[in-house]
């Protein structure tokens, strides 16, 4: 039953809509308040002040664009690949903050209070996202290669 659900083409569509929705929403909330997002980035103490605002202005648009591309379908496989890389990067960034004992504000969906519980919650959410996007990407690759294999002329 689970295998059937996982392999269903509807699962791919559902995952695409879900992940695209998350990225568009996350991007939109941060575009609306770049200062709060810059504060979140600064709380991770990883970047010099010259880069923080540039990233706070560019990254939310990037997230929203990836969401739109994933939803539209034209470059969905490429968008899934980049979302996978980004989610992995987010996980690594949160883990390093936890290891360093920093009180960070994830800022994933705009401004929020700083608390250790929120950071663990964000990490859990990101790990889940990595698995979902990884599955989506693998399914897309598989579908694409299978199609080209079927269309390839016989040797």
């Amino acid at each position: 039953m689970i295998k059937k659900i996982l392999l269903s083409p509807w699962t791919v569509v559902l995952l695409r809509v879900l992940i695209a929705g998350v990225f568009i929403y996350a991007g939109a909330t941060k575009i609306a308040n770049p200062r709060a997002f810059a504060d979140s980035i600064a709380s991770f103490r990883m970047l010099p002040s010259e880069l923080i605002n540039v990233i706070a202005l560019g990254l939310p648009v990037f997230e929203a664009m990836l969401g739109v591309f994933l939803l539209m379908g034209k470059w969905k496989r490429q968008a899934a690949f980049v979302i996978l890389l980004m989610s992995l990067a987010f996980c690594i960034i949160i883990i390093q903050a936890l290891v360093r004992g920093l009180e960070v504000n994830c800022g994933c969906f705009g401004a929020g209070a700083t608390s250790q519980w929120d950071v663990w919650l964000s990490l859990g959410r990101d790990v889940l996202l990595v698995f979902l996007v990884w599955w989506l990407y693998v399914r897309m690759l598989w579908a694409e290669n299978k199609k080209s294999f079927l269309l390839a002329p016989e040797a």
Binding site: I31, P34, V54, L57, G58, L59, P60, V61, F62, M65, L66, F69, W75, Q78, A79, F81, V82, L85
Partner: peptide, 17 residues
């Protein structure tokens, strides 16, 4: 795709600002 999208996003972000 990563390179082109990231560069465009940065330009759009700066423009919106």
């Amino acid at each position: 795709f990563l390179w082109i999208t990231a560069t465009s996003a940065l330009c759009i972000g700066l423009l919106i600002n």
